[in-house]
Deep mutational scan, measured.
Amino acid sequence: SEEWVEIALRLLELGREANINGTILNLHKEEIEELIRRLLKRI
């Protein structure tokens, strides 16, 4: 399964939302940290 691709796409999506909203992603901080942890486990 290409889970890391899904994770990377989700991170990009959150990054785009952050640019549009001008936020520092506090809302998504925990989700982002969890996604990155899952991503690093696969490398």
Rank of each mutant, 00 (worst) to 15 (best):
E6C: 15
N21I: 15
I43G: 02
A8S: 04
R38V: 05
E30S: 07
L35E: 01
A18W: 09
K29E: 07
E34Y: 08
I20D: 05
A18Y: 06
K41W: 10
E30P: 03
L40W: 08
E3W: 14
L25Q: 05
N19V: 15
L35C: 14
I43N: 04
L27D: 12
E34Q: 08
H28C: 14
T23V: 10
H28M: 15
K29M: 15
N19E: 10
T23P: 09
I24C: 15
L11F: 05
I32D: 00
E17W: 11
G15E: 02
K41A: 11
R10K: 06
I43W: 13
I32M: 05
L27Y: 09
E17D: 06
W4N: 00
E2S: 10
R42V: 13
S1A: 10
E31F: 12
W4S: 01
H28N: 09
E33W: 14
L12D: 01
R10W: 13
I7L: 08
L35H: 01
I36V: 06
I32W: 09
T23Q: 08
I43Y: 07
E17A: 12
E33P: 01
R37T: 05
V5M: 11
G22R: 04
E17H: 09
I20V: 09
N21H: 06
I20R: 11
V5W: 14
R38F: 09
L40V: 04
R10Q: 03
E2M: 12
G15S: 09
E6F: 14
E17R: 12
L9R: 10
E34L: 12
L14I: 12
R38T: 04
L9Q: 04
A8H: 03
R16D: 03
H28I: 15
I36D: 00
K41T: 08
I43L: 11
E17Q: 10
E31M: 06
K41F: 10
L14K: 01
I36L: 07
L39H: 00
H28E: 07
H28L: 15
R16A: 04
E3A: 12
N19P: 04
L40G: 01
R16W: 12
L39W: 07
E30V: 06
N26T: 06
K41I: 12
L39K: 00
I24H: 07
N26F: 14
G22H: 07
H28P: 07
I24N: 10
H28G: 09
L35W: 10
W4T: 02
E6Y: 12
E3F: 15
L14T: 02
I7V: 05
L27W: 12
N19I: 15
G15H: 09
E2Q: 10
E31W: 14
E30Q: 09
E6D: 07
E31D: 05
E34G: 06
L14D: 01
L14W: 07
N21K: 07
L27N: 08
V5N: 02
L25N: 04
I32G: 00
A8Y: 08
I24A: 07
I24D: 12
L14F: 05
L35V: 03
R37A: 05
L11R: 00
L35N: 01
I32L: 07
I7F: 05
L27F: 05
G15V: 15
A18H: 06
L14Q: 02
S1H: 13
I36M: 04
G15W: 15
I32H: 00
I24V: 04
E33D: 09
W4D: 01
L14A: 02
E31H: 08
L40H: 03
L27I: 12
K29H: 11
A18T: 06
N26D: 13
E33N: 11
K29N: 11
I32N: 00
N19C: 15
L12Y: 04
N21T: 09
N19A: 14
I7R: 02
K41R: 14
E13N: 03
E34F: 08
E13Q: 10
R42G: 05
E34I: 10
N21V: 13
I43S: 02
L14V: 03
R42E: 03
T23Y: 14
L25A: 09
L27P: 04
E30L: 06
R38E: 03
L12G: 01
A18D: 03
N26A: 09
W4L: 10
R38L: 10
T23S: 12
H28Y: 12
E3S: 14
I7M: 05
A8W: 13
I32V: 08
S1Q: 13
L12Q: 02
K41N: 06
V5R: 07
L9D: 02
L9V: 05
T23F: 13
I7T: 01
E33Y: 13
E30Y: 05
L12M: 07
E34M: 12
W4Q: 01
I24L: 04
E13K: 06
A18M: 10
V5P: 02
L27G: 07
T23W: 13
L14M: 03
E3N: 09
E33Q: 10
G15T: 09
E2H: 12
W4K: 00
L40N: 01
E6G: 09
L11S: 00
L39G: 00
E6M: 13
R42Y: 15
I43D: 01
R10Y: 10
L25F: 05
E17G: 06
E6W: 14
E33C: 15
A18C: 15
I36P: 00
R16Y: 09
L39Q: 00
E33I: 14
A8K: 03
I7C: 15
R10L: 09
E6S: 10
L27R: 10
L14H: 02
R38W: 13
G22Q: 10
S1P: 09
R37H: 05
R42D: 03
N21W: 14
L9N: 04
L11Y: 02
G22P: 15
I20E: 07
N21G: 08
L11H: 01
E17M: 14
R37Y: 09
E17N: 08
L40F: 05
L35G: 01
L25R: 06
A18G: 06
L35F: 06
I36Y: 04
L25Y: 02
A18V: 11
R42L: 15
S1L: 14
I24W: 12
R42I: 15
L11P: 00
N19K: 11
G22N: 09
L35K: 01
N19M: 14
A18L: 13
L39D: 00
E17L: 14
L12N: 01
I24Q: 04
E17T: 10
E34N: 12
R37P: 00
L40R: 03
L11A: 01
E2I: 14
L9H: 04
I7S: 03
R10S: 02
I36W: 06
L14C: 15
E3V: 11
N21R: 10
L12C: 15
K41S: 07
R10H: 08
L35Y: 04
E6T: 09
N26L: 14
I43C: 14
N26K: 03
E33H: 08
R16N: 04
E6P: 04
I36C: 10
V5E: 02
E31N: 03
A8G: 04
L11D: 00
L25W: 06
L25E: 02
I20S: 07
E31S: 02
R42N: 04
R16G: 05
L35A: 03
I32P: 00
W4H: 01
A18N: 04
K29F: 15
V5D: 02
L12P: 00
S1C: 15
L39P: 00
R42W: 15
N19L: 15
R10F: 14
E13R: 08
E2D: 09
E13L: 13
G15N: 04
L12K: 01
G22D: 10
I36Q: 00
L35P: 00
E17I: 09
T23M: 08
E34T: 11
E30H: 07
I24Y: 05
I20A: 06
R38N: 06
I43A: 05
L27T: 08
E13G: 12
L14E: 01
L40Y: 06
G15K: 03
L35S: 01
R38G: 03
E6N: 11
S1R: 08
L39T: 01
L25D: 06
G22S: 07
E17F: 08
E33T: 11
E30R: 11
L14P: 01
N26W: 15
R37D: 03
E34D: 11
I7E: 01
E13Y: 11
K41P: 02
E2W: 15
T23C: 15
E3D: 12
H28T: 13
L35I: 05
T23I: 12
W4V: 07
I43F: 09
S1E: 12
S1K: 12
L39A: 03
K41M: 13
E33V: 14
E3T: 11
S1M: 13
I43E: 01
W4E: 01
I20H: 05
L11V: 04
H28V: 12
V5S: 03
R16P: 03
S1V: 14
A18E: 03
E31P: 02
E13T: 05
E34K: 08
E30T: 07
W4A: 02
L14R: 02
L14Y: 04
E6L: 14
I43V: 03
L12R: 02
E30F: 08
L25M: 07
A18I: 14
